[in-house]
Design a protein around this nucleic acid. Structure first.
Length: 514
DNA sequence: GTATCCAGTCAGGCCAATAA
DNA sequence: TTATTGGCCTGACTGGATAC
C-alpha cells in the first residue's frame, strides 16, 4: 500500500499540466514548484515513493511507475505469492511440429540454431530449443531482426522482443523516434499556393508557410471578416474622412475611435497627408511652439543635442566678424578647447551657456552631474590657460549674449583695447550705460570661482551620490565622542582606534578630559 | 530434485516537447 | 542552449510453475 500523505515536490511542465489539473491541482507557472500527493503522480513517473508491503507490512520505496499501476504492493516475490498464488499460466504456442511414429516423438525446429530435434509428447507444446545452450543464446540477444525504420539487421534479446507490445522493432532509439515522427506526419496541400507540404496529423495547418497564410488572410479575412475585428465598433462608425485631403478613410479599431472622438486626435488617410498637415498647420501653432520649447530644454538637459554650435556661439561669432576681428573656433590648447581665440590679439573668449555652466543667477544649487563636471572643468581650464598662456579668459554668459549683444560687443572691444586686462571677466558683472560698459556695483561670483567647499555645499545629495566612488560598505557612521558630531570613517581605521572622534582637536580634547 | 520455461520486476538510457 | 519531465524501449535478473 502506498503510504498516504506523502508529498512529492514537482515542477509544473507542459507534459504533466493536464494530468495534475485533472487531479485538482491549480496551475501557477511553468517551472514553479508544487507539492503532489504520491498517489496523484503520473503512472510513468520515476519519482521514488514509499509503500508498505501488503503481506508483511515492511516499509520500502520504489519508483512511482512501478507502484501506481498496481493495486497491491509487495516487498518481494515471496510476499506476493504468499498473498496471491500464481495462476496457471497460459501455455505458449510452440512452432509447427510433426509426429515421428518410429520414435514416438515429435519433431520441432530449434528457435535458436534452426536445427531439427525431437521431444516427447508432453514437451511438444512447450519446448522451443534443442539444448540448454541454445535456450540461453535464444533467450539473450540472439534474435536477428530488421529495423522498422532503416531496415538494418540487428540483434535483439528474445525476452525483450516478446515483451514488445507494439511488435515494431528498431535498431536504435533514434530510429524508433524518427519512425514515430514520420508516422505522425502527413502530406497536405496548401490552400493558397496548392504546393504539397508536410505537417503533423494532429495539426490543423492549412498553409505551407506564414507568407501564404498572410496573403490568403489579406484577401479573405479583412474588414468585418478579420479575426480581430471588434464588433463593438460597427462599420458605419469606422467610415470617416481625412482631415487634410478629404478622401474617405477607415478607423481601424475602437481605441483609435476613442482617441479621435474623446481625445481630439486627428485622422489622416496617409503618411503624406499627416506630414503636410504637420508642416503647414500644426508646426505653425503657438501650442506646438510651447511644446517644442519644453522639448528642447529637456533634450539639452539630457545631453541629446550637440551644444558646440549653439545660438549664443553664433551671436558671438557674428559680433567678432562684424568687428573685423579674426578668430578661431574651438581653438585647441592641448588639454582644452577655447570657444574663440582672437588670433591678432592673443586673447580668448568663452561662451557660457546658462545650463551647462550653471549660471548662479538661475541655479541656486548644482542639481545635475554634468553641471558639476563642467564647473570643475572650467576651473581647471582657467588655471591652465593662465599658467601656460598667461591669458585671462573673457567669459560671456548666455543671458547677456542673447539679451544684450551690444554689452557683449563693447566688452569685447574693452577686452581687446586693454590687452586682456579687466576688473572682472564675467559679462554679468558689467552694465551698459551711454553705450559704454562699466563694472556693476554688485559683483556676482560664478560657481567656477567659488571656494571648493562652497561649491560642494551647493551640490545636491542626488548628484553627490551619483559621483561618489566611496564603497559605502567599508565605512561606518558614528557620533564624535567629544563633540557629538555625526562623522564617517573607514571601518578598518575605526576598529583600530580606541577613541572615536571627528577630528584631531576633538580627540586631543577628549584625552585631556580623561 | 532437476531441468526448463517464462511472467514479472527493476532500473538505465534515449528522445521529444517545452519553458526559460 | 539548457534543464526538466514523461514516454518508451531495453537488458538483466528473479523465482514460481511444470514435467519428468
Amino acid at each position: 500500500m502506498i503510504i498516504e500523505g506523502q508529498m512529492i515536490e514537482m515542477k509544473w511542465s507542459v507534459l504533466g499540466k493536464e494530468h495534475y489539473e485533472s487531479k485538482g491541482y491549480v496551475f501557477t507557472a511553468y517551472k514553479e514548484k508544487f507539492d503532489v500527493e504520491a498517489k496523484d503522480l503520473m503512472v510513468n513517473s520515476k519519482e521514488v515513493i514509499r509503500y508498505t508491503c501488503d503481506n508483511c507490512g515492511v516499509e520500502d520505496s520504489k519508483q512511482a511507475r512501478n507502484l501506481l499501476i498496481k493495486e497491491k504492493h509487495y516487498c518481494s516475490l515471496k510476499c506476493r505469492n504468499a498473498k496471491e498464488p500464481i495462476k496457471q499460466r497460459e501455455k505458449k504456442i510452440a512452432s509447427p511440429y510433426t509426429y515421428d511414429p518410429a520414435t514416438k516423438r515429435y519433431e520441432k525446429e530449434c528457435q535458436n540454431c534452426k536445427s531439427k530435434y525431437q521431444v516427447p509428447s508432453y514437451r511438444k507444446d512447450i519446448s522451443n530449443y534443442c539444448s540448454e545452450s541454445c535456450r540461453r543464446l535464444g533467450m539473450n540477444k540472439q534474435v536477428e531482426l530488421n529495423c522498422k525504420h532503416c531496415d538494418k539487421q540487428f540483434i535483439r534479446g528474445l525476452s525483450g522482443m516478446k515483451r514488445n507490445k507494439s511488435k515494431q522493432f528498431f535498431c536504435s532509439s533514434a530510429c524508433a523516434a524518427s519512425y514515430k515522427t514520420e508516422q505522425s506526419m502527413e502530406t497536405k496541400e496548401c490552400e493558397y499556393c496548392n504546393e504539397l507540404f508536410k505537417s503533423k496529423k494532429k495539426y490543423k495547418q492549412r498553409f505551407c508557410s506564414t507568407k501564404c497564410q498572410s496573403e490568403w488572410q489579406s484577401i479573405y479575412l479583412v474588414g468585418e471578416k478579420a479575426n480581430n475585428f471588434n464588433k463593438s465598433l460597427p462599420l458605419n462608425k469606422r467610415n470617416t474622412k481625412c482631415e487634410w485631403c478629404g478622401n474617405s478613410t477607415k478607423i481601424k479599431s475602437p481605441t483609435k475611435y476613442r482617441q479621435i472622438t474623446e481625445q481630439g486626435k486627428h485622422i489622416f488617410c496617409s503618411t503624406k497627408c499627416t506630414k503636410q498637415w504637420y508642416s503647414s498647420v500644426w508646426s505653425q501653432s503657438e501650442e506646438w511652439r510651447e511644446a517644442s520649447r519644453i522639448r528642447q530644454t529637456k533634450f539639452l538637459s539630457e545631453g541629446i543635442f550637440d551644444h558646440t554650435d549653439t545660438a549664443p556661439q553664433k551671436v558671438i561669432d557674428s559680433i567678432l566678424t562684424e568687428m573685423n576681428v579674426s578668430y578661431i573656433n574651438e581653438y585647441n590648447c592641448k588639454y582644452f578647447a577655447i570657444d574663440n581665440y582672437l588670433i591678432d590679439h592673443n586673447l580668448m573668449i568663452e561662451v557660457m551657456g546658462s545650463y551647462w555652466h550653471c549660471d548662479t543667477r538661475h541655479y541656486n544649487d548644482i542639481a545635475y552631474k554634468r553641471q558639476l563636471k563642467r564647473i570643475m572643468n572650467d576651473r581647471r581650464k582657467k588655471a591652465y590657460i593662465k599658467e601656460q598662456y598667461n591669458i585671462n579668459i573673457l567669459y560671456l554668459w548666455e543671458e547677456e549674449i542673447m539679451n544684450e549683444p551690444k554689452l557683449c560687443k563693447r566688452l569685447i572691444q574693452k577686452y581687446i583695447e586693454n590687452k586682456g586686462l579687466l576688473d572682472n571677466y564675467h559679462s554679468f558683472n558689467f552694465i551698459l550705460k551711454d553705450d559704454k560698459v562699466s563694472l556693476s556695483s554688485s559683483i556676482t561670483l560664478p560657481y567656477m570661482e567659488m571656494e571648493l567647499e562652497i561649491v560642494q555645499s551647493k551640490v545636491t545629495e542626488r548628484v553627490k551620490k551619483s559621483t561618489s566612488q566611496k564603497q559605502l560598505d567599508k565605512w561606518i557612521t558614528f557620533n564624535c565622542e567629544y563633540c557629538g558630531k555625526e562623522t564617517e570613517q573607514l571601518k578598518v581605521r575605526y576598529n583600530k582606534s580606541k577613541t572615536h572622534c571627528c577630528s584631531r582637536a576633538c580627540s586631543y580634547a577628549r584625552q585631556k578630559q580623561m
